[in-house]
Amino acid sequence: MELALVIGVIAIALVFDYTNGFHDAANAIATSVSTRALTPRVALFMAAAMNFVGAHISTEVARTVGTGIIDPPTGSHGLVIVGAGLIGAITWNLITWYFGLPSSSSHGLIGGLVGSALAASSTIHWDGVVQKVVIPMIFSPLVGFGLGAIIMIAILWIFRKANPHKAGRGFRYAQTVSAAAMALGHGLQDAQKTMGVIFLALYTGGYVAAKDPIPQWVVLAAAAAISLGTYSGGWRIMRTLGRRIIHLAPAQGFAAETAASIVLYTMAIAAKAPISTTHTITSAIMGVGATKRLSAVRWGVAGNILTAWVLTIPAAALVAALSYFALHWVVE
């Protein structure tokens, strides 16, 4: 029975990873596609490949998610808690994808795990939630906004005497690099979250110890699932990020992607924190747009996105809690 539950939770985790990929595909390529630096299909293939590579760089974020958020009891009860958390995250991913809102798959996952653990009266590492989730959740968009603005101002100053046509063509080429860096950061961050949940399921089922390394097959499975999801594309959200917030020029797209990539790498490797790639790139786009003029950013659209950000953790937690009660009744 427990083995079947472990396999079931792993399968649900990989479904979440796939939805994470197509939900967040826009994070890496929306700006490059909107500026015509890359065609959509080429951009998606590049993003999928870089997601796969990025997933193999580090497992520190996976360790944080797997051991630093909740501590479910071993056995079938703990597996129900993990499975319900994943269902909450998947549900919120699909809702926000349908409405074209770039919300955070990462925070949906954290909210789902916390919600199911609360419903089950299981242990939650609140210090880990605050230090590794809440503080970075607030900090990373602010840094993304500020860094995007700084990089854009630097570009405007450095290229102030350049021929606009030649500079635009050069930044279209440069965006290929910055989009690849963004996709690498997405794999580095988001694929690891699924690795962490699969490791949590294996630990809860008694198949690994808390201090064991992440198994290589887990890394490969998570990397493959998010890459396939990314290649399938998230066109609804891509339109929001690429055009509805602000109409981006190639230099602006390059600045936003560069700023977001720097934040993603720093937080994953130095802070070991599972931050939102969605929040980071969206805030960087807003920061870049604000350097043109504040009215260039469509703040009404930005407000809708912010509302989705605020609702993500509690909404995913609520769905996860309801899922826990349903699964608990069926399984146990």
Rank of each mutant, 00 (worst) to 15 (best):
M1K: 14
A11Q: 04
I12S: 11
V15H: 07
Y18G: 07
N20T: 13
G21P: 00
D24N: 14
A26Q: 03
A30H: 06
S34I: 01
M46F: 07
N51H: 14
A55D: 02
A55W: 05
I57M: 15
S58E: 04
T59K: 14
V65S: 06
V65I: 15
I70N: 11
P73E: 00
G75P: 06
L79H: 02
A84H: 01
G85I: 11
A89G: 00
I90R: 07
W92I: 07
T96A: 11
T96I: 06
G100P: 10
G100W: 12
P102R: 12
S104A: 02
S104T: 02
G108M: 00
G108S: 04
I110Y: 02
L113C: 05
V114F: 03
G115E: 10
A119E: 11
A119T: 08
A120E: 01
T123K: 13
I124R: 02
Q131N: 12
K132A: 11
K132W: 08
V133C: 03
I138K: 08
I138M: 15
F139H: 08
P141R: 09
G148S: 04
A149C: 08
M152A: 02
I155E: 01
I155T: 03
L156T: 10
H165T: 13
G168D: 07
R169Q: 15
R172D: 02
T176N: 11
S178I: 02
A181I: 10
H186F: 09
L188V: 14
D190S: 13
A191P: 01
Q192H: 10
M195L: 04
I198Q: 04
A201R: 08
L202N: 00
Y207I: 09
A209H: 14
P213D: 06
A223S: 12
I226Y: 08
L228M: 13
L228I: 15
T240W: 01
T240C: 01
L241A: 05
G242F: 00
R243H: 13
I245F: 09
T258W: 11
T258H: 03
A259T: 05
M267F: 15
A268Y: 07
A273L: 02
P274L: 12
A284E: 00
V288F: 05
A290P: 05
T291F: 08
K292S: 13
L294H: 10
S295I: 09
R298T: 01
L306C: 11
T307M: 15
W309L: 07
W309M: 05
L318E: 03
L318H: 05
L318S: 12
A320G: 06
A326I: 14
A326E: 07
V330P: 05
E332S: 14
